[in-house]
Design a binder for these strands. Structure first.
Lengths: 232, 232
DNA sequence: TTTGGGAAAGGACAAATGTCCCTAAACAAT
DNA sequence: ATTGTTTAGGGACATTTGTCCTTTCCCAAA
């Protein structure tokens, strides 16, 4: 983690994401800009929470580790998103571990200042509400989706969502097989089983395995298989 | 659904749940009190949302139905809780179906008035934030819990949570076997498999099956099995 | 080119879970 | 009590998923 003392840059980010109206005059001086290297942890499950982070550049992954040591990836996130919002409102320790997947830039505000200057400031509260309800909605969908559908359907859905979004670094025109372990943890299955299911989909001709890469062959059939459900 | 034109009663509920400060002077006249019979639907997945409901009495269940007709119970809720909050903030249709499990009383406010008088009112926004982050946290836990643990662990956890909470109507000192189908849908498995796992736990002596009722024999072992995870 | 190391894929088997259907218990009506 | 009907529970089998370990492939270092 590196603090960037670049007020200009910070202002450009505020501008770009229309955040000017979210933070009032008293809060603005307490915003700071941090950068994280690829692979660096932004915060860790169970630690006390200190800052609200606004993801303005790069890509992060949110995951949890169970007592038995299994890892479950809850989501990948790209701007604009918040980290530490739920912890702030509820006054609890960090729920999930957050890791930079690419070089990442975040705007950070210490809870101290949010409490002091933000609890009655409606635009900020509205902003938090919007971001959190969005996250809730996504999580609600993925909960039922995961419980209601087998891995094959979840993978189909994931492939669709990922091969649409060009900004996804897991996707360079296709899905890199190097990221398959992450994908397994994301859809909540084992790497072994994921491979098995990929094999089945290849057999049906829906996808294809080229060296180092998986590419979608038949988006229509895949979409049919995913039964109109989009992964997160 | 029946509207109760009982201003006194409404005030008592507001008092009891400390809601007086949440709704300002302009909003108060637009609050109304509704009652729902056991088994009645409060709102249905996919319909346009109109009201924010505050559950002040009784018990409801939230469930979703997949395209293939499978039902997944997302949660049971008792006061104090909100229905329609996420839909209000996001401006979307009803996400899940809500059904009264017991006779239920709700305070309702039409979105129209919330929009008109509530968008800048910090106490209301804070209240919404607190309720929604709580729901988010619960859902986040249950998502990972479900994906990371087999049915046996989920059942153990459920039994613990339910046999602690005396206010739970599913629980009269024990778990009524008549509710097993609901339990299966809640922990995301089939009724058949749930029975199988109950059998296993009986075999291990952790629980016992009396006529019409399942009772917890060994809370300690059950808790160990649930690996310190509490269901919802 | 050879060789060693590591990552990716897959084989074999076990465990978890789903589906279908049957049995047995409970209960109501006569 | 007898019969019919409903519902809870379970048997049998298929499918899905997990675990462990082996094989294959790729690439770097010599």
């Amino acid at each position: 983690m590196k603090q960037l003392n670049d007020r200009e840059q910070l202002n450009r980010y505020l501008q770009a994401h229309h955040l000017k109206s979210i933070f009032n005059e008293q809060l603005l001086p307490h915003l700071s800009l941090y950068s994280f290297d690829q692979g660096e942890l932004i915060c860790s499950q169970g630690e006390p929470a200190q800052h609200l982070y606004v993801l303005v550049k790069g890509k992060i992954k949110i995951y949890t580790t169970s007592a038995e040591g299994k890892t479950l990836i809850l989501s990948f996130k790209t701007p604009l998103d918040l980290i530490g919002d739920v912890e702030y409102v509820r006054g609890i320790d960090i729920i999930n571990t957050v890791e930079a997947v690419s070089p990442v830039t975040m705007i950070a505000v210490h809870y101290r200042w949010l409490k002091k200057y933000g609890t009655d400031y409606a635009p900020l509260l509205q902003f938090l509400l919007e971001m959190i309800t969005r996250k809730f909605h996504i999580k609600s969908n993925s909960l039922s989706f995961n419980l209601l559908h087998p891995v094959e359907v979840r993978l189909a859905s994931y492939l669709l969502s990922v091969s649409f979004d060009e900004s996804d670094s897991l996707f360079k025109g296709q899905l890199r097989t190097a990221d398959l372990k992450d994908v397994a943890n994301l859809i909540g299955t084992s790497y072994r089983h994921l491979n098995r299911v990929i094999r089945q989909l290849c057999g049906k001709g829906l996808i294809e395995r080229k060296k180092g890469v998986i590419l979608v062959n038949d988006r229509g059939k895949l979409s049919e298989l995913a039964s109109h459900n989009i992964y997160e």
